[in-house]
């Protein structure tokens, strides 16, 4: 009975994933086309089309950096977000400062394992809910822009809103550092050393996630192998 149920679930999950990829690719492509077409529609409205030469020049100046960081983000974050979560997250953006911590937090709260159907479902639900909240907050904010602007931009509240990301990473660090103290201490130490001695790297922190993550994964692998050997030895 249990085997039948597992087979049914696997088939169901397979169908779900297949449909998610089809839907995800179509929707992402549509959004991409809309985003690329919008500047031309605005150009028609303003009677001033984009200057393609200037755009190409600027792309060579700054865009290539984003091309590299886009590839890196894709390679790193798809394994964290699963299929449905990835399509949604890349459409809605704000990955580092919201979607990734949000999905990881949700995964942790309900205790699901990576690579499982539960992880796929939880990540998609998490990204969908957080994206809708952002869309709603921004829509309300834009609708109430005139009364809200003096409050949100008041010099008193400004420092609080300028430090949303440090507050987010501080809270998340406590949660994850507690159960991985050695790895956290080494990675934080090495990265601090780099930023202190090469302060120009501070402006490229999003790129520095790569060596930092690689070091953390390397250390986690060593710890994993040691624990596995310990378990095998005790058998």
């Amino acid at each position: 009975m249990k085997d039948n149920r597992n087979t049914d679930n696997q088939a169901l999950y397979g169908q779900y994933l297949k449909a998610t990829h089809t839907l995800g690719r179509i929707m992402t492509l549509l959004v991409l086309l809309l985003l690329l077409a919008a500047p031309f529609a605005i150009g028609l409205f303003l009677e001033a089309m984009p200057n393609l030469g200037a755009a190409a020049k600027a792309f060579l100046g700054v865009g290539l950096v984003y091309l590299v960081s886009g590839i890196v983000e894709y390679l790193i974050y798809v394994p964290m977000l699963g299929a449905g979560g990835s399509y949604l997250a890349f459409i809605t953006g704000n990955l580092i400062n919201m979607k990734i911590p949000c999905a990881i937090n949700a995964r942790d709260i309900v205790g699901v394992k990576s690579g499982t159907p539960e992880n796929e479902i939880v990540a998609t639900l998490s990204i969908a809910a957080s994206s809708l909240v952002t869309i709603l907050v921004l829509a309300l904010g834009v609708a109430l822009m005139i009364p809200l602007q003096p409050i949100l931009q008041s010099p008193v509240l400004q420092p609080a809103f300028e430090n949303v990301v440090p507050a987010l990473f501080g809270a998340m660090a406590c949660k994850y550092y507690r159960s991985n103290r050695v790895i956290a201490l080494i990675v934080l130490g090495v990265m601090s050393f780099l930023f202190v001695f090469v302060p120009s790297l501070i402006g490229s922190t999003s790129m520095m996630v790569i060596p930092s993550g690689a070091l953390a994964i390397g250390l986690a692998y060593l710890s994993f192998r040691r624990q596995r050997k310990g378990r095998e030895g005790s058998k």
Binding site: P101, Y176, Y177, L188, M191, T205, V209
Partner: peptide
Amino acid sequence: AMFIGLVSA
């Protein structure tokens, strides 16, 4: 570990 790397950076 990847997330610890991200936060630590």
